[in-house]
Amino acid sequence: MSFLTRFKKNFGWEFRATRPQYDLDPIIYSKLKPLRLPLILIQLLMMIGTLGYVYLENYTIMQGIFQAAYTLTNTGFGALNESNFKNETIIFTVFLMIAGFSSLIFAVGIVIDVFTNGNLRELLRERRMLFKIARLRKHFVLCYHNEYTAQVARQFRENHIPFVVVDPSDNIEQIAKENGYPYFVKEEPYKEIAFLKSHLSSAKGAISLSKNISDNITLIASVRLYEKELERTPFLIISNAETLNEKIRLKKLGADKVVATPSLMAKRVSAMAISPDMENILDEFLYKKDSPITMEDLLIKDNSWIVGKSLGELNFRDTLKISVIGITEASGVFVQLPNGDKVIKENSKLLIVGSQRGLSRAKRVLNLTNQPKDI
């Protein structure tokens, strides 16, 4: 690695590619191929006209180009020596006028045909969309539009989480307008072309909320295979299931999180019935836009300064204004509401709650190699 590359990396100045992974340019160029013929014809007539005037009237090259240009475009005469044209030149000029008018009509017909009878406009709109998607990082790919997807998208928008919706519906553009999807792709979500168009390689994860379990199974398997091809860290895959049996199957197939919709609804109704105040707290602080309190996972690296220290010793509540309500150790064991004697181990994941400012600062300082002086 060169010094310049290391310098850019250390200061976070790496240049990120913003071109789409799926290139539509060859397809667009193929749609524009019919325009080549009128362009070639006009250039050929310009050359014939220029050389004709040079030969017949002893014009210079620049005068010949000028005379041929306004003759072909039928914009009028009088700038040069038209009043003294020889008969041969007059016949030649009439030929150029008719040829110029005919080529113009021919070109206009081809342009209208290309832009109205083909899908060029759709391709150009899709190309603009793909360039916007290519700028996203750590986004989520939401697969299959339905009422679940629309609700998740609304929550993501309110919490400023970037996402791309992938759905094969022919009217996906209209669906996106009605549901406020800023980025969308019209493809079958499990296909590699959908992964390329949605820039899945730079995404945080994929969410499949289809009511058809086979769609979810296919999507999970395809994403895991694509993940191995990229040789990257695992995607976070979230799916939904209608029954407990489906939930178990999807987890075995590779889903990280599976939401059983009937079970989730039952738990929320139960919480409302048993403890209405707790339900109000969840709605107020965890699900509300711009909430003063939020919750996040934080992975602790093996060289972090907090590794080997206990929660009581670290005293996060006073130093960072956050609370650790759960720890997922590297082995996968989850410790709920750990006490002060709990020691932080390497590669463990802290579930922390606090203000947005506190969480931002915690993410910035807890994985430093050396302990900050102000903590």
Rank of each mutant, 00 (worst) to 15 (best):
E122Y: 12
F140D: 00
I193S: 13
A99F: 05
V164E: 01
M97E: 14
V164W: 01
R121A: 10
V114A: 09
Y190L: 10
V141W: 00
V166R: 01
N119D: 15
L142C: 03
G180N: 04
G205S: 12
L130Y: 05
H145V: 10
V164P: 00
Y181I: 07
E188G: 05
A150C: 05
F106Y: 14
N171Y: 08
R128W: 02
F195E: 01
R137F: 04
H160N: 15
R154H: 13
K204G: 12
M97N: 15
E188W: 08
Q151E: 12
I207N: 00
G118C: 05
P182C: 09
F92L: 03
H199Y: 14
S201A: 15
K138E: 14
F140I: 09
P189F: 06
H139A: 07
A176V: 04
F101M: 14
L130A: 08
H145P: 00
R137G: 06
D167Y: 04
K191P: 02
F95W: 07
L196S: 01
F115H: 06
E192T: 15
C143S: 11
K186M: 07
Q155C: 09
V165E: 03
A153K: 01
N117T: 11
P189H: 09
A176W: 00
N159D: 14
S169D: 13
K132M: 04
E126N: 03
K197T: 07
N119F: 05
S208V: 11
K132E: 12
Y148F: 10
L123T: 01
K191L: 15
Y190V: 10
Q174P: 05
F156K: 00
R125I: 05
F106M: 09
H199G: 13
P182L: 07
V165F: 00
P182F: 07
F140A: 02
G109Y: 07
F115R: 08
K186T: 05
V165Q: 01
I193T: 15
K132L: 07
V166I: 14
R128K: 13
A107S: 15
Y183W: 12
H145C: 03
P189Y: 05
I133K: 02
D170E: 12
L130E: 04
L200P: 03
V141T: 13
L130Q: 03
E192G: 12
F163N: 00
N159G: 06
G180F: 02
F92K: 00
F92C: 01
R125E: 08
L124M: 13
S202P: 09
E178G: 04
A99M: 12
M129Q: 08
A150D: 07
E122T: 09
P182Y: 07
H199I: 09
E147H: 14
A194M: 12
R154E: 12
Q151V: 13
Y183K: 09
E178Q: 12
Y183V: 01
R157W: 01
S208A: 15
D113Q: 08
F95R: 06
R121N: 11
G109F: 09
R135S: 08
E178K: 11
V164I: 08
P182K: 07
L136M: 07
E187N: 10
M129C: 04
E147I: 11
I133Y: 01
A134D: 02
S208F: 08
H199V: 10
N117V: 08
F195Q: 02
K132Q: 13
S202M: 14
Q174M: 12
L123M: 10
F101C: 11
A176H: 02
A206Y: 02
N119A: 06
V152Q: 03
F131M: 06
K132V: 05
P168Q: 06
D167G: 11
E187P: 02
H139L: 04
